[in-house]
Design a protein around this nucleic acid. Structure first.
Length: 713
DNA sequence: GTGCCTCGAGTTCC
DNA sequence: CTCGAGGCAC
């Protein structure tokens, strides 16, 4: 830290050496800080080192080290669990509620396979355990990692806790080299009752239901607490493998059982829809006597080769579905209807209910969707919640209403008891002005929602936009969540009314210092942590920035696609300006992006052309370094711009891999063959698609042919 | 024009 | 998680 040369005077060689020195110093400081030793350097000195590192990196970007301290998100010490990225995503299942939905599921599969003439397809049926999913990774037969589902992509590492569960073997004999077992952690009714009795004896809060008790127990930071909780585990699936478990779903389940896992004894094979429904009825009958909670029955195509052919939609497999038991219902009184204003200005009515227990949870709020839903009609004029004469039943304050939790989560109102309606109850009048700012609230023709036109003048919209800005898929600033955003918005001393203000917080605070640190609930440490978290996000990927702006219709997916198309922020901004009149080559280019239509394009171009919004964006970006989006390198790609379709079983790659690879080479991957298809890649077992391609005279290759074609590209 | 399929937006409770 | 609606294939 002594005799430091000014950054501007550094030669390249000196800069390289200096970066190495800083990386070592900062790493050592981190170790001291996070370990048991007292920090060896002061916070101010640490900040100075980090700042110097950043300056040098800015001047010599090419010298930036792979272990650059600026990239490191200060390893979180024992607060919470480490994150684990799943090798194979943990997906959720599609739902069926009626017998018709199950029949449709079966039809869809047979149509997809081109098997309209095959009457009976074999499925497995098993109870759907109401617990929490867990993924166990075994290498050379040893349990090396246990992870919760999380958002499906990333979960939490709970290995130490999983090792305390008796149903989870620590070692396996005869397992493939790499095996990822998936299943459900749950708690039995008897164990749950006993646990709650123990909780009461210690005057600890009882758990609301076995599911919460299981979740709470698994997520204990102290594994000895988990060990004292009676958790159980059923294995039902697998992820990453070094060798296939079996040819069929049932075979794989049997193999898991042979390896020492508990598998559900009610898992059976069923031929066709009627057999599935019979098994559903049987399991529903047995539900009360099982001794643990289940919330439905899961059906899966038994033949694993067919599962591979069927593949996945964006969030669910095509080859499985969860047939849910009817939701629990409860009657309660509607006390009030409040209106919330969202970031796009949407006015959403929320029912305030007299608290009632539904499905093991006390519910006091429920969504009312929109104006029409309260009136008892859908947006197309159809009647919902009809009375015996088929007339619409509206919802009034004071009514007795029937509540359920859709998908066991979101409380909704299913019905209204007109017999108990108080005489004085009047139909709800939906406001035509914004309750937050008084601006007009307008409902566009054909639209279901009414929106406040106040834009950023409306405090509710401004706050919600800020919340969106810092949300997980956007800037994701640690220590700056919804609550903090609300606080800063209302703050007189350090106001944050727009995104740019987040990045001037530190400067503004420094002038009077400790403005933030002296506040209720804040100390020097939390203030410093927040400022650091903000610094880390000054560098932001293009796609995240675009999504964070919260332009209507432009979500996470669209933002990524758009960023990939333009590459750099500057090129994108220039394109938006050039398309201002909603015409011309840049307008056409925007519309040419897959997934972008006129509605989205207008919203996008309009946002950048609107002076206030544009100024706000420019004020923000001057504080940021926008990272270039990786433009797929399609030079020398033989399939750039071509539409390709995969069919049949792919043996050397998964469907997701094949799709990702093709897209990276600039090809468009379609799901079905049409006249627009340029190339069909047909694996063994290809059916109707191959036939259709032949009829249309479309070039067809096998998997090896495809790999040869793209080799080296 | 119609019928998927996916995405976007809004929602609750722990 | 669900609804509405945008985008796209037929």
């Amino acid at each position: 830290m002594t005799d430091t040369i000014a950054v501007d005077d550094l030669s390249e060689a000196e800069a390289r050496a200096e970066l190495a020195r800083l990386a070592a110093l900062l790493a050592e400081a981190n170790r001291a800080y996070h370990g048991e030793d007292a920090p060896e350097i002061s916070d101010a000195a640490y900040d100075a080192l980090k700042a110097r590192n950043a300056l040098i990196e800015a001047r010599f970007p090419a010298l930036k080290r792979s272990d650059s301290p600026s990239e490191q998100v200060g390893a979180a010490p024992s607060e919470g669990f480490a994150k684990v990225t799943h090798k194979v995503r943990m997906l959720s299942l599609g739902n069926a509620f009626e017998a018709d939905d199950v029949a449709e599921f079966d039809t869809r599969i047979r149509r997809y396979l081109g098997w309209a003439d095959v009457a009976l397809l074999t499925y497995t049926a098993e109870p759907k355990i109401d617990g929490l999913s867990l993924s166990l990774r075994y290498e050379q037969g040893k349990l090396v990692q246990a992870a919760t589902r999380g958002d499906g992509e990333t979960g939490e590492n709970v290995t130490a806790n999983a090792r305390t569960i008796a149903d989870i073997p620590g070692t396996l004999t005869g397992a493939p080299d790499v095996l990822e077992v998936r299943g459900e952690v749950y708690m039995s009714h008897a164990d749950f009752k006993a646990l709650n009795a123990r909780q009461a004896a210690k005057s600890d809060k009882p758990f609301a239901n076995p599911r919460n008790a299981a979740a709470g127990s698994l997520r204990q930071l102290d594994a000895t607490i988990t060990a004292a909780r009676p958790l159980r585990f059923f294995a039902y699936s697998w992820g990453d493998l070094s060798a296939p478990l079996a040819d069929t779903q049932m075979g794989a389940i049997k193999r898991l059982a042979a390896l020492g896992f508990q598998t559900n004894p009610l898992t059976v094979l069923c031929d066709g829809v009627d057999a599935l429904l019979a098994q559903y009825a049987m399991i529903e009958q047995a539900r009360a006597t099982l001794g643990y909670d289940i919330d439905g029955v899961v059906y899966k195509v038994d033949d694993l080769a067919l599962q591979v052919r069927l593949g996945f939609r964006s969030t669910t497999p095509r080859w499985a579905i969860a047939h849910k038991f009817p939701a629990e219902l409860a009657w309660t009184r509607l006390e009030a209807i409040d209106i919330q204003v969202g970031r796009t200005g949407a006015l959403s009515p929320v029912a305030r209910l007299s608290p009632v227990t539904v499905g093991g949870v006390v519910v006091s709020n429920a969504t009312l969707h929109n104006e029409d839903y309260i009136a008892g009609r859908d947006s197309k004029g159809g009647v919902i919640r009809p009375d015996e004469n088929g007339n619409a039943k509206d919802i009034r304050v004071g009514d007795w209403v029937q509540v359920y939790r859709a998908g066991d989560v979101i409380p909704k109102i299913a019905d209204v008891d007109l017999g108990k309606r108080p005489e004085e109850a009047t139909a709800f009048v939906f406001p035509t002005t914004c309750p937050e700012c008084g601006s007009d609230a307008v409902r566009e023709e054909g639209d279901a929602v009414r929106r406040c036109v106040g834009g950023l003048i409306c405090p509710a919209q401004a706050v919600e936009k800020l919340k969106h800005f810092v949300s997980r898929a956007a800037f994701d600033i640690e220590g700056l969540g919804a609550k903090q955003v609300e606080m800063f918005y209302k703050d007189d001393q350090l106001p944050v009314k727009e995104p740019a203000a987040i990045f001037t917080l530190k400067e503004r605070d420094r002038k009077n210092f400790t403005k933030l640190a002296n506040r209720e609930g804040w100390g020097e440490k939390s203030a410093k942590n927040l400022f650091e978290a903000i610094e880390e996000k000054r560098k932001i990927p293009f796609g995240r920035l675009l999504f964070a702006l919260g332009i209507r219709h432009v979500g996470e997916q669209a933002s990524t696609l758009i960023a990939r198309n333009y590459g750099t922020w500057d090129e994108f901004i220039a394109a938006m300006d050039a398309a201002k009149e909603f015409e011309g080559p840049e307008w056409e280019r925007l519309l040419g992006i897959d997934g972008v239509g006129t509605v989205m394009a207008r919203a996008l171009v309009g946002a950048f052309a609107e002076p206030h919004e544009r100024d706000s964006i420019d004020r923000l970006t001057q504080h940021l370094t926008v990272e270039e989006a990786a433009r797929p390198d399609t030079s020398g790609s033989p399939v750039a711009g071509k539409t390709v379709v995969f069919t049949g079983t792919l043996e050397k790659m998964t469907r997701a891999e094949a799709k990702a690879r093709a897209e990276a080479l600039g090809a468009k991957v379609a799901g079905s063959v049409s006249a627009k298809t340029d190339l069909l890649i047909a694996g063994p077992g290809a059916g109707s698609k191959a036939k259709k391609a032949q009829e249309l005279g479309i070039e067809t290759v096998d998997e090896d042919g495809w790999l040869a074609l793209i080799e080296g590209a």
